[in-house]
């Protein structure tokens, strides 16, 4: 995070040094795109906050720990695809699952679908990529996540 801030400021400074006019144009472009995305994003995040309250972490742990084997993997994939849990919660959560004896494949599928498939952000994705591409990308990512999880489960 700090690195990103420093990097961005360096880029901005360099850019200003070389060409003020160009920098201003760039900032305007960025700002417009930001405003463009903001309302849809805030709406979705407020809905996700409600969902996150309705489905607390304990029930996710319970849900994922309940079944092993193919059913467990499938449940993990579905939960991961629907939930929008930021990585800094998701990884500790996955760590807890592992320590409770939940299989590697279940945890791997959960983590991978969580970060690759964004069910709740699909409306935003559609605005950029179109319906077909957004749905296709999420479905393919879901399948890929299942494969990755199963492979990890086989090796570990």
């Amino acid at each position: 995070m700090t690195i990103l801030i420093i990097l961005t400021l360096c880029c901005l400074l360099l850019s200003l040094l070389f060409d003020r006019q160009k920098t201003m144009t760039g900032l305007q472009i960025g700002w417009k795109m930001f405003l463009n995305m903001l309302p849809a994003l805030l709406t979705i995040l407020s809905i996700v906050s409600i969902l996150l309250y309705l489905v607390p972490q304990e029930s996710i742990v319970q849900l994922l720990g309940a079944k092993s084997g193919p059913v467990g993997v499938l449940i993990a994939g579905l939960v991961g695809a629907i939930a929008l849990i930021p990585p800094f919660i998701a990884f500790p959560l996955a760590g807890i699952l592992l320590s409770k004896g939940v299989g590697y494949s279940v945890v791997a599928v959960f983590v991978t679908t969580l970060i690759m498939v964004g069910f709740v952000t699909i409306p935003i994705e559609i605005r950029y990529f179109g319906k077909k591409a957004a749905l296709l990308r999420n479905s393919l990512s879901f399948v890929a996540a299942l494969i990755i999880g199963l492979l990890i489960g086989l090796v570990l």
Binding site: L12, T25, G26, Q28, M33
Partner: peptide, 15 residues
């Protein structure tokens, strides 16, 4: 994250 991201995207676009 987002303002930084868009700032970089804007600069990227012009440069």
């Amino acid at each position: 994250f987002l303002p930084l991201m868009f700032l970089l995207v804007g600069l990227f676009d012009v440069w």
